[in-house]
């Protein structure tokens, strides 16, 4: 009985590790773009009843060097760093690379009105928010 339960937990643990390793294997794709010398920023998407907020982590960036473009379905960012960052990439690459900017295009989880986007930059964090509250029609109860 104990052995069986233990096997079950081991299996769950192995799955978490498999996920972890998939994530690590895909890391270069998700965090770096060597060809364009750009880093893909860490970001977070939050959706509430009122707002959709995308927050980017942008160390080494000045406000005036951020360029944002939004459509109803996507948000693109390009931001030059105030100085290039040299990083050694692992895996089969094992070389130093210089990165000069952040670049990322995000597919938004819901349709937005890009005209009503607002962006705020504090301490290297950029928060882009859209209103998700739509004025509705009153529903009559009969």
């Amino acid at each position: 009985m104990w052995e069986d339960e233990s096997d079950l937990f081991d299996e769950m643990e192995r799955r978490v590790h498999a996920l972890l390793h998939q994530t690590m294997a895909g890391m270069h794709d998700s965090l770096f773009d060597i060809d364009s010398k750009s880093l893909k920023p860490l970001y977070r998407i939050e959706v509430s009843d009122e707002q959709l907020i995308v927050t980017f982590d942008l160390p080494y960036v000045r406000k005036e060097d951020i360029s944002l473009t939004s459509t109803e379905e996507t948000l693109s960012i390009e931001a030059k760093m105030k100085r290039p960052v040299t990083m050694r990439l692992g895996g089969s690459i094992q070389r130093h690379f210089q990165f000069e900017k952040y670049s990322k295009k995000i597919r938004l989880p819901l349709r937005v009105n890009p005209d009503d986007a607002r962006a705020m930059f504090r301490n290297g964090l950029l928060a882009v928010s859209y209103s998700t509250a739509h004025k509705g029609n009153a529903v009559k109860v009969v």
Binding site: V16, L20, M27, L31, P59, Y60, M87
Partner: peptide, 18 residues
């Protein structure tokens, strides 16, 4: 701090996934 933030992105990303 900016350098640390840039260099710890991979660990942050894995940690977040787990």
């Amino acid at each position: 701090s900016e350098e640390i933030r840039v260099k710890s992105r991979e660990l942050m990303s894995t940690t977040q996934a787990v």
